[in-house]
């Protein structure tokens, strides 16, 4: 048994928002449950109401194409990872999702859940940040959209209101972007990120976006970087310097700040290598 809560399987998103509004901050949305139920078991959260949105067909779908992709809130990670078109359209995101937890966990865990949990180490977050993903939100007052870069408010905190439900994540047109994801773990088996990072490079605009996880209270998106391809090494040094200025890693049981600071430049360098220096990436 876990905690002490009521459970509602909702028939519409509006109904869900209504329940959450009535719970006035004591409610939580149950998607895969792989973070939420652990936190309830460990006494870190004690919601009075769980709103299960998995019965809604509208949240169970995803569509992927070059112009725009939408991933519903109930779509399990493995549905995406094992989807050929998704994997080829969003390889970095697929890599990031495949690095989350165990195979069993990924049959329950969702992309939306990964960001709603708002861990600084959320593996999907850096990729979504560099892809300019948009969070689609429903609330008592109607729907709205939030850019992922405005979504995280702190460790385990988002800018959602208590009555709001994330319904989907939308990824804008890829328009020739090359993307890459890197993660440092402590072991090859399932692990949280000691550091993670994602990059997106537009060869047309010669602009690079980088985002870093697990090195600050929230995942960090850097300002777009103009790519100067004349001197790869000097450019890499410049980027790494910029990255290190943008983050503030701490020491915890997973790693020291020193190790994070040492590994982060390596991940960035490897991303640059894949995106810029190695010919055409995906």
């Amino acid at each position: 048994m876990l905690g002490n809560f009521e459970y509602k399987r909702i028939r519409s998103i509006e109904e869900g928002c209504q329940y959450l509004a009535e719970a006035a901050g004591d409610g939580a949305v149950l998607a895969g449950g792989t973070d939420l139920l652990v936190e309830i078991r460990n006494g870190l959260k004690s919601p009075q109401l769980l709103v299960d949105c998995k019965g809604l067909d509208v949240l169970n779908v995803f569509s992927v194409d070059d112009s725009r992709s939408t991933i519903g809130a109930s779509v399990a990670l493995n549905q995406l990872i094992e989807h050929r078109v998704f994997r080829t359209t969003h390889p970095a995101l697929a890599d990031a999702l495949a690095s989350i937890g165990t195979y069993q966990l990924r049959n329950r865990a969702t992309l939306v859940g990964n960001i709603c949990n708002a861990s600084p180490a959320a593996d999907a977050a850096p990729v979504l940040l560099v892809l300019d993903a948009v969070v689609e939100v429903a609330g008592v007052e109607g729907p709205r959209t939030v850019p992922v870069r405005s979504f995280f408010a702190g460790v385990k905190k988002t800018t959602l209101k208590p009555d709001e439900i994330v319904t989907a994540i939308a990824l804008p047109a890829r328009s020739g972007l090359r993307t890459a994801f890197r993660k440092q773990q402590r072991i090859r088996g399932h692990d949280l990120a000691v550091v993670n990072a994602a990059g997106a490079y537009s060869p047309a605009k010669k602009v690079l976006k980088l985002a870093i996880g697990s090195c600050a209270p929230t995942p960090v998106l850097l300002d777009p970087i103009e790519v100067d391809s004349k001197d790869n090494e000097a450019f890499a040094d410049h980027v790494i310097e910029t990255v290190l200025r943008a983050v503030s890693p701490i020491s915890d049981v997973r790693a020291s700040a020193g190790y994070r600071n040492a590994v982060l430049p390596i991940l960035v360098k490897r991303i640059l290598h894949e995106l810029l220096f190695e010919g055409s990436g995906a």
Binding site: R186, I187, R188, G189, H190, D191, L192, V253, R254
Partner: peptide, 29 residues
């Protein structure tokens, strides 16, 4: 050899009493 060991804070509290932070080899390791 590679991963296991208790981590205590300065007051002697065990910081890694769960599989999240106490890693044993998996089939990938």
């Amino acid at each position: 050899a590679l991963w296991e060991g208790f981590v205590f804070d300065e007051k002697g509290r065990l910081l890694n009493p769960a599989f999240v932070d106490y890693k044993i080899p998996t089939a990938k390791d």
